[in-house]
Amino acid sequence: MLRHFLAALLVLTALSSAYAVPLTLKVNTSIKPPLSTVAEDGALDLVLAELFSRVGHELQLLRLPPARALVMVNRGESDVEVPRTAGMELTYTNLVMVSEPIIEYYFVGFTKGASLDQLFWDDLRGRSVAAIRGWKIYEEKVPTAAKTTWVSSPEQLFRMLDHAHAEVALHERYTGNGIIRQMGIQGVREASPPLALRPMYLYVHRRYASLAPRLAVALRTMKQDGTYARLMRSVLGDSFQCK
């Protein structure tokens, strides 16, 4: 009996020690500067590094196209996906959502020379529109009557707008404006109001399901103690809006 007890205790100790060892989690992202950079000094890069350190782990950022990233994390070839809208687990059933939003995205239309004082979803009907393949909100919301071209990168997206191959380029406010500046494109403006404002979330592969609530608590604490806003504003300045 004692021998069995000691054997069980050794197994539990080994499992506990293994769990305590810091993990390096593979985190998929397709976001661009100023939210994420190759040097990993973008606004969300800083937030993610702090967040994972608070739960005792490290991360390795993998820069992938949006559609491919979802397939990879759902297969378990990577561990975490960021950022995504709520409900991805309904289609990608191996994913578990972290309940606290990592950021709020302003999904907007960018125009160049088009006389669009206001822009709503229905205004896209009949217009030439460019959007990035794998951005689910645009795949779901852009009217079928729009003349939509799906591209694989934001550079292609804004090049189409710059060369008048699209009247409206659909992207996200922070990264969209950053890419436009980086590419040196002139005369582009953000149409108003935003087409959508959505909280965006982290997702973990189900093998790390127990990590999801810990990440949510740590992220919520970062917002409450001011760390989150400080890190975001260190890159985005006063343009960052924190609710």
Rank of each mutant, 00 (worst) to 15 (best):
G42V: 05
P83N: 09
D225S: 05
K223I: 03
R198T: 10
T221A: 15
S115F: 04
V55H: 05
N28W: 03
V204D: 03
K136W: 11
I103F: 14
L236R: 07
M222K: 08
V38I: 15
P143T: 10
S234N: 00
M200V: 00
L197D: 00
K223A: 05
R125H: 01
D45W: 10
A114H: 02
P213W: 07
V98I: 04
A169R: 07
P65Q: 15
S36N: 02
W135E: 07
N74C: 04
K136E: 13
T175K: 02
A169Y: 11
H205Y: 01
A131M: 10
L46E: 06
R54G: 02
M222E: 03
I31R: 14
E81D: 15
V108N: 03
A145L: 14
M160P: 00
E77A: 12
M1G: 10
A146M: 02
S16W: 10
P83W: 15
P34Y: 05
P199W: 11
Y208K: 12
G42F: 03
Y92H: 10
F110H: 08
G42L: 08
A166G: 02
T227G: 00
N74L: 07
R198N: 11
I132K: 12
S115M: 10
L25Q: 04
N177R: 15
I185K: 07
L197E: 15
L157N: 09
M232C: 01
R63N: 04
L12C: 15
P33C: 09
F52G: 02
L59P: 02
Q60L: 14
S53F: 05
N94E: 12
D225A: 07
L90S: 14
G226K: 01
W150C: 01
V27S: 00
R207M: 05
T91M: 07
T29G: 01
